[in-house]
Simulated assay, not measured.
Amino acid sequence: MRSVTSTSPRSAGGRGAPVEPRRADAAPRRRAAPSCDLGLALGIAVTGSVAVAVYRGGIPADAPAAAHESVGAALALPDGGLREQAREAFTTALHSASTLSAVFALVTAAVVLTLLRKVPRT
C-alpha cells in the first residue's frame, strides 16, 4: 500500500527561509507545495464521498446497518442476494468515482490549454 506524504514548506525549511542563488528555482515549487497538498486532500475527499454515497444508494434500505457501512461487512452476511447487491453497488461506486475523476482531469486539461494560449512563447 502506498502512502501520501506531505511536502509542505514547513518540513522543507519554512516559507520565509532564505534561498541559495543556485537553488532559487526551487523556491516557487516549495511555495506551491501547500496548494498541491490541498488539491490532493480535496480530491481524495470528494472522490471518496461520491463513492460512499453511490455505494450506500445501491444497498436496499431494509438491509442491516453493517451492509450500509462497508462492502466487507455486507459480504460477510449470510444473505446471498444482499451480497450480490453489495458487489454491484461497490462496482458502480468505483465506476462513478473513476468517471468523476476522469471528467475533472479533462476539464482541468482544457482550462490549462486555454490559459496557456495567452502566454507568449519565449
Rank of each mutant, 00 (worst) to 15 (best):
A65W: 12
V103Y: 01
A33H: 03
S49V: 01
T91L: 08
A66N: 07
S70F: 05
S70T: 15
D79Y: 08
P34R: 00
S101K: 01
S35N: 10
V71Y: 07
A73C: 07
A32T: 07
V46C: 01
P34C: 00
V54P: 08
D37K: 01
Q85T: 11
V46P: 07
P64A: 03
V52Y: 04
L100A: 13
A76C: 07
V103C: 13
A51K: 06
S98F: 09
A65N: 07
A63K: 12
F104V: 13
A97V: 09
A76F: 09
A45N: 10
L75G: 04
V71M: 12
D79G: 06
A97R: 07
L40G: 11
A105V: 12
R83S: 05
L77F: 06
A45T: 13
H68W: 06
R30A: 02
A76P: 05
S98H: 11
S70V: 10
A97H: 10
V52D: 11
A102F: 09
Q85I: 07
R83K: 14
V46F: 02
D37G: 14
A86N: 00
H68D: 04
L94H: 12
S49Y: 00
A74N: 06
Q85E: 13
P64E: 07
V54S: 09
A67G: 08
G58I: 08
F104T: 13
A32E: 13
A63F: 06
S35Y: 13
D37S: 11
C36V: 09
G48K: 07
R31W: 14
D62K: 05
A86L: 01
S70C: 12
A67Y: 00
L42A: 15
V107M: 04
T47E: 09
L38H: 13
P78K: 03
P34N: 00
T47F: 00
R87Y: 02
V107N: 02
L77R: 12
V111W: 11
T99W: 04
L38K: 12
D79N: 14
R30T: 03
A53L: 14
A41D: 13
G80D: 15
R56F: 02
V107C: 10
A97I: 09
A66Q: 15
L94M: 12
A109S: 13
V52G: 01
A89C: 10
G72M: 09
T47G: 07
V52W: 06
E88D: 14
A102G: 00
L42N: 08
R30G: 04
V54C: 07
S70W: 06
L100R: 07
L100W: 06
A33E: 03
P78Q: 04
I59K: 01
C36F: 03
A45R: 12
V71W: 07
E84P: 08
G81N: 12
T99G: 00
G39H: 05
G57L: 10
R31E: 12
A67T: 03
A65E: 15
G80S: 15
G80L: 15
A93D: 00
A102Y: 06
F104A: 09
S101N: 04
G48W: 02
G43S: 10
P64V: 02
H68V: 01
I44D: 12
S49F: 00
A105S: 13
G43N: 11
T108R: 06
